[in-house]
Design a protein around this nucleic acid. Structure first.
Lengths: 206, 206
DNA sequence: ACAACATGTGAACAAGTGTACACATTAAGC
DNA sequence: GCTTAATGTGTACACTTGTTCACATGTTGT
């Protein structure tokens, strides 16, 4: 295979997907976007859309896949940086918040998709959250922090943790991306939520 | 004032608002609805819309107000029926789930609005949730169940409770309205979440 | 070099959109 | 009963929408 010429393959595809993210980042809702609007934002003729996607839901599903990559990157960074257990929550939530800012549009899209119009996208995002929760359960087991919990109870706990963190996305929506004070408040509150949950888990028995 | 004739005042207004709820109940997202589509569903000519609302966001805001009434009715029913404290969680979650089924469209609209396109609607729904959480805190204080918690910690706990219940709305979206088994699963899981949170609150200190 | 293919483009269409205006009907107040 | 305001209706206009088609261009494999 030789080196690529002027136009990289899949360049328009990327432009279309990031056009959606741009519009979502500007406050638009995915469900209200049309093909023409997206192609216009991407600087491409409407017909090009069909070269890469069958319809908007198709594009949304591929965005969910990219979202999965973003989440995995975040998870890896958390695993590398959270070494000692005592600051586990603070570190993890901090990494989450900074990723949510760096990839704001992806997380906005995620928050929208959970109650969005496309069932397939809903399921995709829910599936990503389940995977995330199960990985979290694995990590907690490995760190020997939850030996007294049954597998089912640990899964439930991690599910609740992931949900609580995900819900804080709706808080982040409400503040402008550079309002450091408000973001710090959200970060602290999310930490307290998780601490409360882990205190509950530590005293859970039945 | 005399009795009303054929056309009740505000009849079209109601028809428009419930037309939106009908469409949302069918799986559509509020952000993707247009004036013409709503008036068509309501069996009304497009121009009538402007007699009652300035635009779709205006209608959405008035729907948030009605949602507030629905939530208050639910709260009243919970207060009447939850007498003994030992079954507090089961009873409350049960009442929530049954209300969420009876007013499915309202709660779908609520779940959508949290990450919706209109900032005003987002804020409205968040405000309803805050009110709900503060009322819950009052009740718990009155029942003498949380004497060891400071006001701030109690507020946080109730906030987390309300969020967890609200998040289960996104679960209810995913199942058809008559899938009793799945709904029962969601009910049980939500109960466990709340139990875990309350165990955490019972052992919370600092 | 040439065929096969993937990708981008412009014009075109029918259908749907938001909104304004003038007009009809009804309800309420004097 | 008459006036006034509120509410519903039909028409119209300028745009936007999704989608198709025929065609141009560039890339790849042989």
């Amino acid at each position: 295979m030789s080196e690529r010429k002027k136009r990289k393959p899949g360049e328009t595809r990327e432009k279309l997907m990031s056009a959606v993210l741009t519009l979502v980042g500007k406050g638009r809702h995915f469900a209200s976007l049309g093909i023409r609007e997206v192609t216009r934002q991407a600087g491409v003729v409407p017909t090009s859309f069909y070269r890469h996607f069958r319809n908007m839901d198709d594009l949304g599903l591929q965005l969910v896949d990219e979202l999965g990559l973003v989440l995995r990157r975040m998870m890896r960074e958390a695993r590398e940086n959270v070494l000692q257990a005592d600051k586990l929550i603070e570190e993890s939530v901090g990494i989450f918040v900074s990723h949510a800012q760096a990839n704001r549009s992806y997380f906005l899209f995620m928050a929208q998709g959970l109650a969005g119009e496309s069932r397939a996208i809903q399921d995709g995002i829910r599936s990503e959250m389940r995977y995330f929760a199960s990985e979290l359960a694995n990590d907690l087991r490995r760190l020997k922090m939850v030996d007294h919990l049954s597998d089912g109870d640990l899964d439930m706990t991690c599910d609740l943790v992931v949900r609580s963190v995900a819900f804080s996305l709706t808080d982040l929506i409400g503040v402008s991306a550079d309002d450091e004070y408000q973001i710090e408040q959200i970060r602290k509150r999310t930490c307290r939520f998780l601490q409360l949950i882990f205190v509950g888990a530590a005293h859970w028995d039945r």
